[in-house]
Design a protein around this nucleic acid. Structure first.
Length: 657
DNA sequence: CTATTCTCGCTTTTT
DNA sequence: GCGAGAATAG
């Protein structure tokens, strides 16, 4: 019986030979699978099989694309292990496979070897806005016009180069040509950026991967250590790996060659971030002895949905031939709704969701609304509120909220006194009467020369940080955060402020609540984990997972998820497929990536799809007329039905301001 | 030197 | 229609 439960859906579709290959091949395995074929499940199954065969869980490493996926996989493995204890698994229950994202793995590797790298254990992790602020500062120092050389563009180049394993040194070497070109400026800025970052004892997102790679490359004995430690490697969403991730994987796998990767080139939607499908296509070259397994049966969607998805993706030229099939029923037709504008579109979604719940007894949590760009969520939220449909917005980063970042900065600054970025952020939070000039003086070591009154204020701020540090060593994370809120005077300030202030305070308290789950860890370690989770943008949404609500998210963040009912919105030219403002027609490669993205969106649905678009959309406050997306032409008319319920076509009343 | 008001430019997608 | 920097008032 228990054996039966171990059997997973994905493997049922394989012929016995393939099944054996997945489970028993210890050498390299490449699983090429379509959407909904059970890629992640297959990895999970293989891991369990290894354990069953006597492999210690601690010798297994699995890399997933998101933290959420990692968490789910860990839970599933733990669950199945407990369930199958009766089968006499040779497992000590303290042992768990190491399941994480590449970035978490990076943090882990760098922390374990921090002394060697000259880093403190509590190194800060820069997010994009931290990096951007630093680059702006550098441009100012260099007296470079940020309009001529945009900070975000410079950061993008640096980030892409780092993902491609280019270090500052290499880049400066290449880009000596013209000091006034973008490359020249970038080289100069990048150098300073690295220096300042190092002085702050901080790493940025790309460093987590690049530095990990360089560590293993530079110290062969360390590499050997990890190769011995993780004998069995698994990588999910292999098509989305970039060069650093690929090289890191290769280093860890090249000796044992017991690597199993899973991917689908039709779902490569991160090439803008350096993801290279070549990594997947070249797997056979890297590991000539590799077994290749194709999974084409989809266990998720109805025939209608699969037919539409197949038709869409077939239009792409840069792909391997693959045809998904399903044994599920034909299913409902795809509903197309043409809205006059985005408000009407949003109202339709909200009402239809409400109708589905009332008339078809659909759980709201089984309904997802997908869109191309985050700004589209606003109108949808407003409609959900107006129609009083409970919703949950995914992807709004709780940790990116200003007030939450402030609290986190207090923690970071207390632990890492070198972190100028954090100090600058909070030295005047709440307003202590310390402005730009004072801050400049404080950080250029002129603290003693300040006017007495100002000096007193500055000193009390630094005393607060010391107090926080003491609390971290003595109290549980929840208590530390509560102390920051009260001790800093933020509570007093915000309590009798505006409605918005009170909301900010609520979010800060929410952080204290969230920190609760780290309370059981040894003192100090909890805060460390909290900061790590915050920097790596792990999902905090799970907190409200139980809530019965429609889920709103971008197509990108819907990857790997599935829902019974899926609305794909904003299907207009220039929006989906997206086209940068003012750019010329999108090229072949871009169009194909957008099409893959659309394919990902389509294949999220189990039961039914809704496609909608607006004839007029307000962007930046001005009205844009758009024609419907070219992707409609890819889908057979017979699979579609038009929404003709004109009750939704009410006149929209425009408020004059 | 700091606090407040004002204006301009902006938006893919994310670990 | 918002949020970060500049201009201006205190």
């Amino acid at each position: 019986m228990a054996e039966e439960k171990l059997e997973n859906e994905a493997l049922k579709g394989l012929n016995p030979e393939q099944k054996m290959a997945v489970l028993t091949t210890l050498g390299p395995v490449l699983i090429v699978a379509g959407a909904g074929a059970g890629k992640t499940k297959t990895i999970t199954h293989r891991i369990l099989h290894l354990i069953k065969e006597g492999v210690a869980p601690s010798q297994i490493l699995a890399i997933t694309f998101t933290n959420k996926a990692a968490k789910e996989m860990r839970e599933r493995i733990t669950h199945l292990l407990t369930e199958n204890r009766a089968l006499n698994f040779p497992v000590a229950h303290t042992e768990v496979p190491f399941v994480s994202t590449f970035h978490s793995l990076g943090v882990y590797l760098l922390k374990e070897n921090c002394q060697l790298l000259g880093l403190p254990r509590h190194f800060s992790i820069f997010d994009k806005s931290d990096s951007l602020r630093l680059i702006k500062e550098i441009l100012k120092e260099l007296d470079i016009n940020p309009k001529q050389f945009e900070p975000s563009k410079i950061l993008n180049i640096i980030s892409r180069e780092k993902s491609d394993l280019t270090t500052v040194e290499n880049f400066s070497g290449q880009a000596t040509k013209n000091a006034y070109s973008l490359a020249g400026v970038t080289a100069k800025v990048w150098r300073l950026y690295e220096d300042k970052k190092r002085a702050e004892k901080a790493l940025d997102f790309d460093d987590l991967l690049l530095q990990s790679y360089l560590l293993l490359k530079k110290y062969p004995e360390i590499l050997v250590y990890y190769q011995k430690r993780w004998l069995y490697l698994h990588v999910d969403e292999y098509q989305d790996t970039n060069k650093v991730q690929y090289m890191l994987t290769r280093l860890l796998a090249e000796k044992n060659r017991t690597i199993c990767v899973v991917g689908d080139i039709d779902q490569n939607i991160y090439s803008w971030r350096g993801a290279d499908i070549g990594n997947l296509l070249n797997f056979e070259k890297d590991y000539p002895e590799a077994k290749i397994i194709k999974l084409e049966q989809n266990y998720r969607s109805t025939q209608t949905i699969i037919a539409a998805a197949n038709e869409v993706i077939k239009k792409n030229k840069m792909r391997l031939e693959k045809n998904l099939f399903t044994k599920k029923e034909e299913g409902k037709k795809i509903t197309v709704f043409e809205a006059g504008n985005e408000i009407e579109e949003a109202r339709y979604l909200a009402r239809e969701a409400k109708r589905l719940q009332a008339e078809e007894k659909v759980k709201l949590s089984e309904i997802a609304v997908l869109y191309r760009a985050n700004f589209q969520s606003r109108v949808i939220e407003e409609a959900m509120i107006a129609e009083s449909v409970p919703y949950q917005l995914l992807g709004t980063k709780f940790f990116e909220r200003k007030e939450v970042k402030d609290i986190l900065s207090f923690l970071r600054a207390a632990l890492n006194p070198d972190s100028l970025t954090d100090l600058k952020r909070i030295i005047n939070v709440p307003a202590r009467g310390l402005g730009k000039v004072t801050i400049l003086k404080v950080f250029s070591g002129q603290r003693a020369d300040l006017p007495p009154l100002v000096k007193q204020k500055v000193d009390s701020f630094f005393n607060l940080l010391v107090e926080i540090k003491n609390k971290i060593e003595k109290e549980k994370p929840t208590e530390v955060i509560k102390f920051i809120i009260t001790g800093s005077g933020l509570e007093k300030e915000l309590m009798d402020g505006t409605e918005e202030d009170k909301e900010d305070l609520e979010n800060m308290k929410e952080l204290a609540t969230l920190a609760h789950k780290y309370n059981h860890l040894p003192l100090g370690e909890g805060i460390e984990k909290l900061l790590e989770e915050a920097s790596l943008q792990s999902d905090q949404d799970e907190l409200k997972e139980t809530e019965e609500a429609v889920k709103l998210m971008t197509v990108h963040s819907a990857k790997g998820l599935e829902f019974d009912y899926v609305f794909i919105t904003g299907l207009e030219e220039d929006l989906f497929p997206h086209q940068k403002l003012g750019a010329q027609r999108i090229g072949q490669a871009e169009e194909e990536e957008e099409r893959r993205l659309f394919y990902v969106a389509l294949t999220r649905a189990r039961e039914k799809l809704y496609l909608s678009y607006a004839e007029i959309r307000t962007i930046f406050g001005s009205q844009i007329f758009n024609s419907r997306s070219r992707f409609f032409a890819d889908i057979d008319e017979n699979l579609l039905e038009k929404e003709e319920q004109f009750e939704f076509r009410e006149k929209i009343i425009y408020l004059d301001i």
